[in-house]
Design a binder for these strands. Structure first.
Length: 329
DNA sequence: GATGCACCTGACAG
DNA sequence: ACTGTCAGGTGCA
């Protein structure tokens, strides 16, 4: 099978920063051949880049099994459209980088090395349960937990080069009562209850339709609605708003973002033990003031720069302000 | 309404 | 090999 191509240069899309920046936990990079393999939309994808294109192959898919209307279009443009939507390629990113650079000198210096960082447009269900797993947790363990969810409760898509690939399970499956005990046995800890409980709440409130209504709501309303779910607080709620509900002003404030904010913009917040709700909204509002209505996307670029900075600084001497970070993955 | 603390597990540093 | 620490937070007292 040959590679399909979408015109898109490296300034507009940088795969490593976008796929490995903590947005999705399902992409794997093969260094030897410079290719990515991953799953979204019940489809297994291989991706790579040249200077002028994003290249892709569809390794396997369940789409033609789930709907007849899809089947007719599967040979055509459907995969290209899915990919363009996933990477939000309709946004001219370099224009936004210019805009954010003009508004903020820190962004201006950070973005030089970290161009092409895109906000993925993810599926709400996968996004929500992945980030329930993310709380108080390492990226490496989050990835294995997400894979476990897929392997045990998702539909098999295909085998490829010795690995079996699974779609992310639907909410109905995760809502069944025995799930909590099963997930505990699988090592999910206290998150097991959150997953089962949230799933049944979502089913009760209308499943996919409920997510659709959240997209149509104002950001702040959608945020509060999500926080009614068990195991979803301010931070995870903002992750979901930003990454799968198209509320690009949503801005998740985690420990990293707090550090960045206190270090560079809001010095009076330095040295606090934890992020209170008041601090949380102060930090979010500051960035929204600074960058405007796509502040969440802009802050993700800063966040990536921060992650990578620590990876590069691995051999440097840790200080109190910059403690030794654990290796990601 | 604000603050403090327990929470599952395993990856990683010492 | 063998620990202690702690991670992209949240619920509950």
């Amino acid at each position: 099978m040959t590679w399909n191509k979408i015109k898109c240069n490296r300034r507009e899309l940088q795969l490593v920063g976008t796929l490995n920046g903590g947005q999705s936990f399902r992409w794997e990079y093969n260094k030897e051949i410079d290719e990515w393999i991953g799953v979204f939309s019940k489809t297994v994808w291989k991706l790579r880049q040249d200077d002028e294109h994003l290249q892709y192959k569809v390794i396997g898919t369940l789409l033609n099994k789930t709907s007849k209307t899809t089947k007719q279009r599967c040979d055509g443009e459907i995969f290209k459209n899915l990919l363009e939507k996933y990477f939000r390629l309709n946004f001219k990113l370099s224009d936004y980088y210019k805009e954010w650079s003009n508004k903020d000198s820190l962004f201006q210096s950070a973005c030089k090395q970290f161009y092409g960082i895109r906000m993925l447009y993810q599926e709400p269900v996968e996004n929500l349960f992945s980030f329930i797993c993310s709380q108080n947790n390492h990226i490496s363990r989050i990835s294995t937990m997400v894979e476990k969810l897929c392997k045990h409760y998702g539909d098999k898509i295909c085998d490829h080069e010795g690995t079996t690939y699974y779609a992310f399970p639907d909410v109905e499956k995760l809502s069944s009562p025995q799930i909590e005990a099963e997930l505990r046995d699988l090592g999910f800890g206290y998150r097991a209850k959150f997953i089962q409980k949230s799933a049944s709440q979502i089913v009760e409130w209308g499943g996919e339709q409920w997510f659709k209504s959240l997209q149509e709501m104002k950001y702040k309303d959608a945020r509060l609605e999500l926080m009614k779910l068990c195991g979803i607080g301010p931070k995870v709620s903002d992750c979901i708003c930003l990454m799968s509900l198209n509320h690009l002003e949503a801005l998740p404030v985690d420990t990293h973002v707090y550090q960045i904010a206190a270090q560079n913009y809001l010095p009076h917040l330095k040295g606090k033990k934890s992020v209170t709700e008041k601090m949380y909204s102060e930090i979010g509002d500051h960035f929204r003031m600074l960058y405007g209505d796509m502040a969440g996307w802009a802050h993700t670029v800063l966040f990536c720069a921060d992650l990578k900075k620590f990876q590069q600084d691995e051999n440097s001497v840790p200080t109190e302000e910059n403690p030794r970070k654990r290796k990601k993955k």
